[in-house]
Amino acid sequence: MVQRRKAVIAISGVIVIVILALVVIVKLNSNVNKNANKDTILTLGSMKYEVKNIVSKENLKIEESVAKQEYEVNNLEEQDGKLIIQTTSEIDNSDEAYKTAVFLKQSIGNLNKEKINSDGIKQIEVIIKGNKNSWLYVGDNSIKEININ
């Protein structure tokens, strides 16, 4: 009788341990998934964003890079040696966004050489919030189409 009771307790204990183990595994797995989601949401200054698409502009002539449409610089942020320029514009295509961003980077760089040196800024990045799309330019031959969260 006692042995049977001991057996029941042991089996119950094993069942409880198995269930707990399953719960821990499920919990850990869900955390892994959450972390995976976090990897797609990036941070730049105070902005959180996701990259929808990266559009190469290697074939675009750099000498044509100038803002052809009106824009407004809303904010500047300095972070980790980066100057982040936040703008809004009615630009609706990636070519114009790229040209505007390259122009802003060059123009602001030329107009503020001393301050950029004194502040230790190594890189200028440009965010353009358009009517339909938003873009991020980080200084290479491409522009990122982004969702701002």
Partner: peptide, 27 residues
């Protein structure tokens, strides 16, 4: 109809404004 002048091949703003100590070209 353009927001910048071209001076010796370089685009130059007619006006700049100051944001947080930086000169910003205005269209």
């Amino acid at each position: 109809n353009f927001g910048f002048a071209e001076v010796n091949g370089q685009y130059v703003p007619y006006e700049t404004k100051d944001i947080q100590g930086f000169k910003i070209p205005i269209f």
